[in-house]
Simulated scan of single mutants.
Amino acid sequence: MSAVPKIELDGLSKAFGANRVLDGVSLAIAPGESLTVIGQSGSGKSVMLKCILGLIRPDAGSIRIDGEDITRLSERDMARVRAKFGMLFQGGALFDSLPVWRNVTFALTRGRNRSAARMKAIAEENLEKVGLGRQVLNLRPSELSGGMQKRVALARAIAPRPEIIFFDEPTTGLDPIRADVINDLITSLVEDLGATAVTITHDMASARKIAHRVAMLYQGEIIWCGPRDQLYESGNPYVDQFVQGRADGPIR
């Protein structure tokens, strides 16, 4: 295992006015590791993710990707770093005006002169990896079920062969069976790519299946981080209440 973390957050802080959303977050994620971040709505998970993606500048602290601090990079240099990223958005974020094959290859078309036939072949290859075939290539996202849309979005996330993949609530809106299918796909695809993965989720079944380690954010701080097998035996009352979904406890 590399001595240099793939992603390293050190003292990351961010406030919006008087609201301190992140308060000294520190995490190190090894190459090839899958980390899941859990926590209440408003605990800072999405803000942390946006900081790593370079969409929000933190007020303090550093974010290192392969040892490079990205917090002060120019937009041009940040674009170079983002080329390492793949992203599965919570709602899929597919373009309804484009057929499936153009959605899947969207990130591959910028600045590249490739024929439609080549793009369709790439799309089909990636769709097959998520259990879909050529029959959906020319369909619009609106013609697909929610589970199929999620698979198309996953195919788009892996098409550029990213080194790091971010998953934002990947099972939201899916029934338990389809959610488990997506969890299995994420696990196998991340392993096949040898990618590093960061997942934000409220789904405890997803957290336990996808992650090597789980971290919990509470009031802008990481209050616990450990192996997924210890999630239900953390010894932390905040974590215990959250993962068990209890109304009674220290979280109000």
Results as ranks from 00 to 15, higher is better:
203 D>L: 05
202 H>N: 01
233 E>R: 15
196 T>S: 01
215 A>P: 08
230 Q>D: 12
212 H>S: 01
219 Q>A: 14
209 K>F: 06
216 M>R: 02
214 V>L: 01
234 S>D: 01
205 A>H: 12
212 H>A: 02
219 Q>M: 07
237 P>E: 10
231 L>K: 13
238 Y>H: 14
216 M>A: 04
236 N>M: 08
195 A>Q: 03
197 A>H: 08
214 V>I: 06
236 N>T: 02
210 I>N: 05
205 A>F: 10
241 Q>M: 13
234 S>E: 04
240 D>W: 15
199 T>D: 04
223 I>R: 07
232 Y>E: 11
230 Q>L: 10
240 D>A: 15
196 T>R: 00
229 D>M: 10
211 A>K: 00
238 Y>L: 12
224 W>L: 07
234 S>V: 00
237 P>F: 12
229 D>L: 14
207 A>K: 08
216 M>T: 00
235 G>W: 11
231 L>Q: 13
221 E>F: 09
242 F>L: 14
221 E>I: 00
225 C>S: 13
199 T>E: 02
203 D>E: 06
233 E>Y: 14
204 M>S: 14
243 V>A: 06
237 P>R: 14
227 P>H: 15
214 V>Q: 02
212 H>I: 01
207 A>N: 03
219 Q>F: 08
239 V>L: 13
194 G>C: 09
242 F>H: 11
226 G>A: 01
221 E>A: 13
233 E>N: 14
205 A>I: 00
217 L>H: 06
231 L>P: 11
217 L>M: 07
228 R>C: 01
208 R>D: 00
235 G>K: 05
228 R>N: 07
225 C>L: 12
233 E>P: 09
242 F>R: 10
222 I>Q: 00
210 I>C: 02
244 Q>T: 04
227 P>K: 15
210 I>T: 01
